[in-house]
Amino acid sequence: MLEVKNLNAGYGPVQVLWDISLEVGKGQVVTVMGPNGAGKSTLLKSILNLTTRVKPKGEAIILDGKDITRLPPEMMVKEGVAFIPEGARVFPEMSVLDNLLMGAYVPQARPHRGENLEKVFSLFPHLSERVHQKAKTLSGGERQAVAIGRALMSHPKLLLMDEPSLGLHPLLVSHTFKAIEKINRQGVTVLLAEQNVFFALEISHRAYVLESGRIILEGEGKALLKEDYIKKAYLAM
């Protein structure tokens, strides 16, 4: 579904990513993991064209056979790519309902608005009790749920998530990953950037390990958990 070839990107003169190539198959959950500063967020942002590209020749980002390499960020939603930024970034003064409905801003999401709203509420039942509450009054976990819900309202084919577990209570982390698994079963492909390796690999079909801006390891989700390197570096076993 998504193919990234020879991506070199960074911020201004600082190059962060070096020759990144990865593939996300239709219906899969794929995780990009790695320590702080490895370039996980930069990778997701680069797919959305939010970074500076270095050496643009030879690179390509292809979604369902369509070249989306140079598409501006706000056009990505129209192609079916939704992004959940680190720290949720909800609209604080808007109600939960308005936040969710804002997710269906693009015209092609509007016909599915009712059906997607139902889906969000069945995924996060507690949100339906808080529809009229301002988003700024929510807890961190609820805010993350609103952010995921808002992304789903755009009727995406592919969901990019930047550290959904960040700053959440351990119990909520497992809830969040269960929700991601459910979303995936409903047919949405997911590309995840995560540090919480154990939870992420549990639900992932495939994973890539990113270090200092380069992919150093890739493999099947659960199989990677048994890899010595992963055990040592991430699971402290």
Partner: peptide, 24 residues
Amino acid sequence: SRMGYALKAIHEAEDAAELIGVNT
């Protein structure tokens, strides 16, 4: 209108507004 909601979204979280498809 849709424009009004887009304006408010820009006020509250401009980068998030861009991500949901608002041509800010």
